[in-house]
């Protein structure tokens, strides 16, 4: 199970956080013959705080209105029924915006491992996004780490890739099965530059 070679050959799940050879996915600077070996997103558990916030925001009107009535603050004495309805519509519009943003932030923060390089699509907020590349032959060290109770329980963590490229370090944050990711990166690295007789490839 933990060996990436045991995973299904191709991933058809568009929401996958650990997708070997994802179907229907490509990227704009993909070279001819370059194949995506692994697509990674942050573990789904990292979305739990946003989901809890959304649930709380959803429930606030149901809780706040009766509490207001209970303490003697009658909203219906100040606003008409239509106005209260419009305020509720606005509240849920903001909620939908929050959910949409949380989702695309998770969905588009993608790490790719191809048979030539590692690619980091960094979606850093609503007006900023950055893409970084490092060729596999530039990879010098790969260090997976799983720290904390939830990370150990759900088996996710960071993979830190040291490179000899312009950007010295690539961090894959909170990805599922970081040890398998590191192993796969090293496997691909070996394929790009097979070990020499002295065994000093990496």
């Amino acid at each position: 199970m933990d060996n990436p070679t045991d995973t299904p050959k191709r991933s058809y799940n568009p929401f996958a956080m650990f997708a070997p050879q994802p179907v229907g996915v490509s990227f704009d600077e993909q070279d001819e013959g370059e194949e995506i070996v692994l697509l990674l997103r942050a573990h789904i558990v990292t979305l739990v705080p946003a989901v809890l916030e959304a649930i709380v925001m959803f429930a606030i009107p149901f809780v706040a209105l009766p509490i207001g009535t209970f303490i003697g603050f009658h909203l219906e004495n100040i606003f008409s029924g239509t106005q209260i309805l419009i305020m509720l519509v606005c509240w849920y519009l903001f909620l939908v915006g929050f959910i949409l943003y949380s989702f695309i932030y998770w969905y588009f923060n993608v790490y790719l491992l191809t048979n030539e390089r590692v690619v980091d699509f960094d979606f850093q907020g609503i007006v900023q996004q950055k893409t970084s590349y490092a060729y596999l032959r530039q990879v010098q060290d790969v260090a997976p780490s799983i720290v904390g109770f939830f990370a150990t329980f759900f088996h996710f963590g960071d993979v830190i890739i040291e490179t000899a490229g312009e950007r010295p370090e690539f961090d894959f944050f909170s990805v599922a099965r970081p040890d398998d990711v590191a192993r796969e990166i090293l496997d691909q690295r070996k394929r790009v530059e097979p070990e020499g007789p002295s065994g000093d490839s990496l």
């Binding site: 704009d28 943003y101 695309i104 588009f108 979606f123």
Partner: peptide, 23 residues
């Protein structure tokens, strides 16, 4: 919120070009 929704729309458009996915 309207400005925010435009930005979300543009980001999705840009990311859709940079990283086409089934979704």
């Amino acid at each position: 919120n309207l400005v925010f929704s435009f930005l979300v729309f543009r980001q999705i458009q840009i990311m859709g070009k940079k990283l086409p996915t089934p979704l």
